[in-house]
Design a protein around this nucleic acid. Structure first.
Length: 228
DNA sequence: CATCAGATCTGCT
DNA sequence: GCAGATCTGATGG
């Protein structure tokens, strides 16, 4: 990916609600070790507000090795494993020491469709899928998009800005550019084309459970369920 | 389309 | 031990 299309640290160094909105329409890019490029347009995000947010992994100031990336500098990948078989990818926001992040919930795949389909049809170490997949089911969910893009814990802690801009050092620097976000070529999406709703999969029942912290591109058929 | 059980593992109690 | 920012296949309308 040409350097000028990468997002800088400054892009991510804002509050998670702002970042969740700004990320819509940007391109998630996964470059495999053999150079294969997988990409998709981000169409759904969720903001997690950290210490006061009962639904956030860092609620109450929790700071364990697993959630270290949420405390890291803006633009750090936070990839966690859950339900015994799924990965989910977030991008940390705000400055180092402020444990907030944005969960990537769905993308519209645009490059590397053949491999994306293969990754979803027959995930590594599992039995091949029984039923056929439609294109809109390829990346319409946080765990689905990780499967499609071969994103797992080895990418946790990666600096998505790859050193562009100023800021602190990344926690980890494995394969440079293995994971990145490209900026939108045009202006950010207008508020009128962003629909909000409550976050998905929360079991609580407080103001955080129902807060409109989920953001989707209006009318996109590539978002997850429940549709807004 | 809606609901539901099962899969399967990590982190924390 | 147990709950969890999930997904799939099956069943019923």
């Amino acid at each position: 990916m040409p350097p000028h299309t990468m997002l800088t640290r400054g892009f991510f160094a804002t509050d998670p609600v702002t970042l969740a909105r700004k990320l819509l329409g940007c391109t998630l890019v996964r470059t495999l070790s053999d150079g294969t490029r997988l990409a998709g347009t981000i169409v759904e995000t969720e903001a997690y507000l950290g210490i006061p947010d009962t639904a956030a992994h860092t609620f109450g100031g929790r700071r364990t090795p697993r959630v270290a990336s949420m405390w890291a500098a803006a633009g750090t990948a936070y990839v966690y494993f859950t339900y015994g078989m799924h990965h989910c990818m977030n991008i940390s926001a705000e400055a180092e020491g402020i444990p907030v992040a944005v969960l990537l919930r769905a993308v519209e795949p645009t490059e590397g469709l053949d491999l994306i389909r293969a990754n979803r049809a027959h995930p590594a170490g599992t039995k091949p899928r029984k039923n056929p997949l439609t294109d809109r089911d390829l990346c319409s969910g946080p765990a689905r998009l990780c499967q499609a893009f071969a994103i797992d814990r080895t990418l946790d802690g990666l600096d998505l800005t790859a050193g562009v801009g100023s800021g602190s050092k990344p926690r980890r620097m494995p394969r440079l550019g293995a994971l990145a976000v490209e900026r939108r070529k045009t202006a950010p999406l207008a508020d009128s084309s962003i629909v909000t709703g409550p976050r998905v999969g929360l079991s609580g029942d407080d103001k955080w459970t129902h807060a409109p912290l989920r953001f989707v591109v209006a009318g996109s058929p590539y978002t997850s369920r429940p549709r807004l």
